[in-house]
Design a protein around this nucleic acid. Structure first.
Lengths: 222, 222
DNA sequence: GAATGTGAAGGTTTTCACAGCA
DNA sequence: TGCTGTGAAAACCTTCACATTC
């Protein structure tokens, strides 16, 4: 049960449903740019290679947003989904590890578009510390616990080498951060109340490799 | 049915199973470095936050690699999985779009470790074309169809802006490439016989945002 | 007529539980 | 005894099909 009244989970929402909400959001943004007032589940499904029934089921978990015979109001639905995903606000994000991947993420437009603002960087390289990277201050990773604790940062992106990732995440957790996106190819240990997600970019390449070698026919595209 | 005899699919292998093979491979590499001769499904599961039954089921789709009472031979299993995933060889990869994300991927160690070699870059920026980027030649994106056709590149990573991604992928497909990993946040159209995977890095951030706002308790970590 | 919202059906994936083997 | 390999059961997710509403 949820005291805020924001959303009461009658049923458990599956992870895939949430991921598809991201897709709907993206499609609806595009539909808005194209000046569409309404969209049917059929059209939405087509744009993201899903089925109309799937779209309707997913949305129905959160309410009835459509009009029978007409479809869904584009802008309204987009805003509803943003609220469900929690991206109707902005999130302050710290990025740890201004290396190869890290510095690419600093300029990643999709993050900002969705309200994720990288406001602080951490690194252990003395040449980077104290300087500005694309307008964002780079702090010493040794002070990460203190600096995060004092900040209002709620989300951390880890882009450090696998060898040090566990040490870094321990500090991040101690600083009270509850949500972490990890790019290091390693399984990190965190307490149960921490949301930790892993982004593993070679996984998809490996899937492609598997598919080619085995003539695999996938059920869906992802 | 598969004429190569490499592997006959008795049952359809699920996508999640394949993704988990990547995890097993990673864990086994680590176990090998730690000089473990054998590993049980229990230990393997623990390392990747899965269940022992899941590990055994996954592996059983491809054969019986273990010894009852003992476990699985680490190095042997690692090699078997590499063969299944098709990463017991090297793949020549072209990367299109040497921007923010693209240039980060050029130096991404995980790719090389798994046998994915980026051997060619493409961009439309005249300042980059002809130059070398981390030792790899940058070609004009206008010649992509010809250059890919003449090459032995089998895999393409797309890291171009969403606005041009469809045009670029059309050329890539015309060049005969069958497997593409797309980083642009857009749904691309390709013929049925092309393997296309999408990497959407903000999806996981959005999931974290959703989880925090809704106190979502996930079934698993991914 | 057109398209949503949703129980019920169908399919897929995961977990259980135990037989079988070193 | 310890741990794999696997049918069967359970859980989960997707699709169907249709009553409902505009």
């Amino acid at each position: 049960m949820d005291q805020t009244g924001e959303m009461v989970n009658k049923k458990r929402i599956s992870e895939s449903t949430i991921h598809r909400l991201s897709l709907y959001f993206r499609a609806l943004s595009q539909l808005e740019r194209e000046n569409n007032e309404t969209v049917s589940s059929k059209e939405l499904a087509k744009r993201e290679k899903l089925t109309p029934a799937q779209v309707r089921k997913d949305l129905s978990f959160f309410g009835s947003f459509g009009t029978r015979g007409l479809g869904y109001p584009v802008v309204e639905l987009k805003n509803k989904i943003a609220a469900i995903l929690g991206i109707d606000r902005s999130w302050k994000v710290a990025l740890v590890g201004v290396g190869n991947i890290g510095s690419a993420l600093v300029g990643y437009k999709e993050f900002t578009k969705q309200g994720f603002q990288i406001v602080k960087l951490f690194d252990n390289d003395q040449r980077k510390i104290g300087s500005n990277h694309k307008g964002i201050e780079v702090s010493d990773i040794d002070n990460i616990k203190e600096e995060l604790t004092e900040s209002d940062i709620e989300l951390v992106i880890l882009a450090v080498p696998a060898a040090v990732a566990q040490f870094v995440i321990d500090d991040v957790v101690r600083a009270g951060v509850k949500a972490i996106l990890n790019f290091a190819p390693i399984n990190l240990k965190v307490p149960d109340d921490i949301y930790l997600r892993n982004e593993n970019m070679s996984m998809e390449l490996e899937y492609l490799s598997f598919a080619m070698v085995n003539n695999h026919t996938p059920r869906k595209v992802r």
